[in-house]
């Protein structure tokens, strides 16, 4: 428990460090993505995951779906905007998400199999 808390604080330190870099260099990246890249670079350099960071990450990842609930509920606030073009948005979201899922999965499979046969 205490270990997870320390781990979470370390992840937040990476987040704030990344946010500082994004602001001061005006990078076209959100801080969490840069933080993810920085931490990955540190883990690759250390060739291992410190136990506290693993504990913090596991805890947050376990409650990941919980953390998405408030932004989803907040969609009510833009209900009017979403309903202003319901057909386009419905099509765009459902059809293109399916296309994205299928193309990615099958392209990967085809390329990996092709390599295996060669």
């Amino acid at each position: 428990m205490a270990r997870s808390l320390v781990g979470i604080l370390i992840l937040m330190a990476f987040l704030y460090g990344a946010a500082f870099l994004v602001r001061s260099l005006s990078l076209p990246l959100p801080a969490p993505i840069l933080g993810l890249l920085l931490l990955t670079a540190v883990l690759l350099a250390r060739r291992g995951v410190p136990e506290v960071i693993a504990a913090g990450s596991d805890t947050l990842i376990r409650i990941f779906p919980l953390l998405f609930i408030p932004p989803i509920v907040a969609l009510l606030d833009v209900k009017a905007l979403v309903l202003s073009a319901p057909l386009v948005l419905l099509l765009a979201v459902s059809a293109s998400t399916l296309v994205g899922l299928l193309v990615t999965a099958f392209l990967y499979r085809a390329l990996v199999r092709g390599k295996g046969q060669a």
Binding site: L36, I61, L67
Partner: peptide, 27 residues
Amino acid sequence: LMAYVADTQFFHIFLAAAVVGLAVPLY
């Protein structure tokens, strides 16, 4: 709704930290 959004605002920082934490499964 306004109060809900304001009171759950602190979830964002945990969400952002969780995205940083994805470095662990990635590694």
